[in-house]
Amino acid sequence: MPGTSVEDLELVTRSRAGDVAAFTLLVRRYEDRVYNLALRLVGNREDAADVAQEAFLAAYEGLERFRGESAFYTWLYSIAVNKALSFRRARDARKEFVLASEDPPLEAAGNPGEIPEAEILAREKSEAIAAAIAKLPEEFRAAVVLKDIEGLEYEEIAEVVGVALGTVKSRLHRGRLALREALKPYLGAAP
């Protein structure tokens, strides 16, 4: 996980001055990370792309509020997390809740015979993990995703989510406990 590089700051400064090309560079630099974060928070690819884009747009609009006290990606993550969570709430309100597991596999299983069984199992496992994450209560989900997927430190998570360190510890732990329950079938094998 990179810190706020001088380059980031320069791009931020230029973006703030209206240099959209500079902002586009920032987008390209962080798009994969923000997208993956959104994917694990909202649970499906299409919405993840949408949410991640929203996050960048919000970042652009809010650039003036970024003072460089925190790392740029921390700041960006906090926007993305907020976007993802509010998106989920709105989606739940619309009763169109879609679980991650409903995302079609990357490749259509047109010829199941040609796909090694091991690969099928691996996919099922991945989908089960993603679905379990998607089902977590949002506070837990954010903590788990930020720590175990995005690799943030506790302190960074506290900053991103805007809660105290102790809360992060508690949410992370409880999230993992919930996942442990959900993923029992997969815990027998060696990690």
């Binding site: 994969d32 923000v34 997208y35 993956n36 690819r45 496992k125 994450i133 788990v144 993923l183 815990l187």
Partner: peptide, 14 residues
């Protein structure tokens, strides 16, 4: 192992 499972999820790019 739970943590390992979660951490081991493939990352997807934008």
């Amino acid at each position: 192992r739970t943590v390992a499972l979660v951490s081991g999820l493939d990352r997807e790019g934008a």
